[in-house]
Amino acid sequence: MPQRVLSIRIDGELVSTTEGKTILEAARASGKYIPTLCYLEGLSAVGACRLCIVQVAGIDRLLPACTTPVQNGMSVTTKSPKLAEYRRIAVELLLVERNHVCAVCVSNGHCELQAMACSLGVTHVRYPYDYPKLPVDMSHERFVLDQNRCILCTRCVRVCAEVEGAHVWEIISRGIQARLVSELNQAWGDAASCTNCGKCVQACPTGALSEKGHAVEEMVKRNDNISALAVWRGVEA
């Protein structure tokens, strides 16, 4: 059945899109940039990071573009001082929650969180750092999970479940206690369902998941092919 064509305004510009698309998809299709972290094209969207927040005329709340479906006649603002400020706050809160020591991180220079902080102009952090004591799981033969760098975006959880079909990853606990765990909270090396495919590593935006043996700054990731594969398989419902 052909989908209904809708028209919306993004930053004042008239854009036509189809029913069922999200604001983010409509924006991207018309070449408009909205910052994202937890979104990865091809995977389901979860609205975890709140970087993609936008203003919609007539609604007081800020809405995540990655999970909000378009409605006919909607008027969306993607750039404003208020949005910039809230996006900066979102990044700062990610930074204080864990120990993101960029200087000694395997992903330094190739990290989406770091790049996002730079592009949003996060020059300092207004909140006190939490400095939690977090473990590094090195039990897997090829890969490492460093909880210190995890931002709970769940891209690994989704790529593993939706593309690889292994569903090794899950989040336990809530709020500040939330942690990424592999297979019923066992060491990654003991997770029998892990196929060693490494998709989670490539999908991870930071140094939380990395390949073993990569020294500081050496972990460069490719998530474009993860997206291509996911889109090709039609994961996205």
Binding site: A103, V104, V106, P135, V136, M138, K212, H214, A215, V216
Partner: peptide, 14 residues
Amino acid sequence: EGRPYYEMPGITAR
């Protein structure tokens, strides 16, 4: 303590 050994050059250089 607890860090992967191959990160040590980068860490100790600091």
